[in-house]
Simulated scan of single mutants.
Amino acid sequence: MADKKLTVVISQAQGKNPAKRELEETLAATLLMEPEIEVSLVPHLYDLSADHTGTLFLQALRGDLVILSWLYPRACHWILDRQGVRGKEGHVLLREEVDEDEEEEQKQNAPFENPERNKTIPDRHIYSIDLRVSSKPEDYVQEIKRIAGESQVQTVPLMDMLQSAPQPAQLEKYLKPLDIINADKNNGAETTEDVKLEPTKRRWYPVIDYGLCTNCMECIDFCLFGVYGVDQGGQILVEEQDSCKKGCPACSRVCPENAIIFPGHKTPGIAGADGEVAGLKIDLSKLFGAPDALEMAARERDAELVADGRDAVGMGVGLRKSSKVSKATDEELEDLMDNLDALDI
């Protein structure tokens, strides 16, 4: 019987930041020496299209899976879910500290239950680890070893898994992380096709956290660019990713459950941060007298409509009366100041 191994995938950072590339290379080299681990490397998860070979590679993997990426774990998990790489959320100890009470408060309402979708979630765990949590490779190696010790690791070698996938020869390159990294250092010079990754382009689209989404449909009412749709089970989904307007996070601001993520946004609450930070995408604007989240969202949408040669619609379209945000009370502002003090920023 084959040795039991845990599959670890390193998702490269966008761009070629030297410090990030060094951490990726060190982790790949270290993990390759661990007998209980099989390591691979793919481009940035958020930039993978549905037909990219990196996506096909991830879809071919079976068993428990560890993903190291430059993303918040929540964003990473639901990007993978959207790509058909599904599993239960694995418990990770190496993470930014989040108050458990705050994490529970974030779940204001029960998420929408779609029995058909739930049937497609396999009995395995996916562990998402943010590579921004620590600059020390040993921290990640230690956490991965801990996970390997408690997970139901796969007994089928990755190479055997790929043989049953479409285009197996094109997927095998992802099992050569150091060759890929070295080729990247040389800017592809004298690089053979077996280690040359399929290129990606930077993308911008919303990612739905189905652990929070209540299927209220506010996003599909608000977005006027055809991004959202509904599946056969009646559940909201991102139907046309590339119809989204680059840099616009407006639909995330109107989501009452904070279930819409834009992983590339600079604001943690919109990019997928958990806990207390997630709510600050709205409240900071109240504190400093700027437009509230819904007003800001309407302005962002209007800017994109005008850029498309269409008429601005303001707050009169796609915003339900129940969604209107009232002016902050003194008590709300006092609570916000307490939250900011607790964040130590």
Rank of each mutant, 00 (worst) to 15 (best):
G234R: 11
A312Q: 01
N182S: 11
V156N: 07
E116H: 08
H265A: 10
E97V: 14
V98W: 07
V306N: 07
L280S: 03
A148K: 10
S164H: 12
D308I: 00
E97Y: 14
D302F: 11
L212R: 13
S252P: 01
V98E: 12
H77A: 13
P115I: 06
G87I: 06
K321V: 05
V317F: 13
R203G: 07
L61G: 00
E34F: 06
N215Q: 09
K88E: 13
V153R: 15
K286D: 01
S49R: 14
K119L: 13
G84M: 06
A13E: 12
Q152A: 14
V85A: 05
A259V: 01
V9M: 06
A328P: 01
I10L: 15
E97R: 14
L131M: 15
C216A: 08
K266A: 14
Y205G: 01
L45S: 02
A328D: 01
P73C: 04
E332I: 01
V230E: 14
L287M: 06
R95T: 04
E300W: 10
E172M: 15
M296H: 05
E89G: 03
A28W: 00
G318R: 04
D274C: 04
M33S: 11
A29N: 08
E116S: 13
T155Q: 13
N258M: 05
T30F: 06
K266W: 09
F262I: 03
G279M: 02
W70M: 04
G275K: 00
Q59V: 08
R202H: 14
H52Y: 08
G275E: 00
A183K: 03
P249F: 11
R253E: 04
V207S: 03
S326Q: 12
P137D: 02
A60M: 10
P166N: 09
Y210L: 07
H125F: 15
Q152G: 10
E300A: 13
L71W: 06
D160M: 11
S49V: 07
A297N: 00
